[in-house]
Simulated assay, not measured.
Amino acid sequence: MSKSIAVIDYGMGNLRSVSKAIEHVAGAHDKIHVTDDPELILQADRVVFPGQGAARDCMAAISKHHLNRAVLKAAETKPFLGICMGMQVLMRFSEENQGTPLMGLFEGQVKHFPESRDAEGHRLKIPQMGWNRVKQTLDHPLWEGIDDDTRFYFVHSYYVDPEDRELVAGTTDYGIPFTSVIARDNLFATQFHPEKSADAGLRLLQNFVNWDI
């Protein structure tokens, strides 16, 4: 049976890479729509919410495209994958720009990495940019076929700190341990970019396309 997959376009995401990666793993008859149409998003069988850039700009763009309701409704009712900023804005508040209110689907904050050093004493660069391991802390269908401690590709200066620790489905160390994946019911969201994470990222996207909640 064919599926429709909406990739939300609010002008702030690596949309071509995300949509091409999903096309690569989707079925021949699946339909991928890169769209800012709220109705098309709500009609889709599953939704991908990518994003990058600053939190305040992201929230302004979501409002400009009249996507607040559609994003929250999709996140509550159908298979939903948040990526990078598409994960962070699900929290209540970000430290970025001296404080930015977010969408508030989950209680928690988005915090800036503190200055820290690696095991050899070298200062860790911010943003974290490159490959890092993800420790799987929750059994989940989207981890199927992906080994624990697999490396994924990150680009970010901020990380999520959810109040409900039962949301945490993966953690990563970058000077401090931080939440790199959250999951609840129909929602799965990653700080890393699966579309840039080689075979493991493609497997995660394939698992999402085939996810039967």
Score class of each variant (00 low, 15 high):
Thr77Gly: 03
Gln43Gly: 05
His122Asp: 03
Lys64Cys: 06
Leu202Gly: 01
Trp211His: 04
Asp173Glu: 10
Glu115Val: 14
Asp173Gly: 02
Thr172Leu: 10
Lys78Phe: 11
Asn97Met: 12
Leu105Pro: 00
Gln43Met: 03
His29Ser: 07
Cys84Asp: 03
Val89Met: 13
Ala28Thr: 05
Ser94Tyr: 11
Leu138Val: 06
Met103Lys: 10
Leu138Ala: 13
Lys125Arg: 14
Ala61Tyr: 03
Ile32Gln: 12
Ile5Asp: 00
Val47Lys: 01
Ala44Gly: 02
Met129Trp: 07
Phe208Ile: 14
Ala189Met: 03
Asp118Ala: 02
Asp148His: 12
Trp143Asn: 09
Gly27Ser: 05
Asn68Asp: 10
Phe106Trp: 15
Asp161Asn: 11
Pro50Ile: 10
Gly170His: 05
Phe113Asn: 04
Gln43Leu: 07
Asp118Glu: 09
Gln88Val: 02
Leu204Arg: 08
Ile126Asn: 11
Ala198Trp: 13
Arg165Pro: 01
Ala21Glu: 01
Glu107Trp: 09
Cys84Phe: 07
Lys78Met: 13
His122Lys: 15
Leu202Asp: 02
Glu120Phe: 14
Ser2Ala: 13
Lys31Gly: 00
Gln191Ser: 12
Lys125Gln: 15
His112Arg: 14
Asn14Leu: 13
Ala44Phe: 06
Thr179Glu: 03
Pro162Cys: 05
Phe49Pro: 00
Val110Gly: 10
Pro79Arg: 07
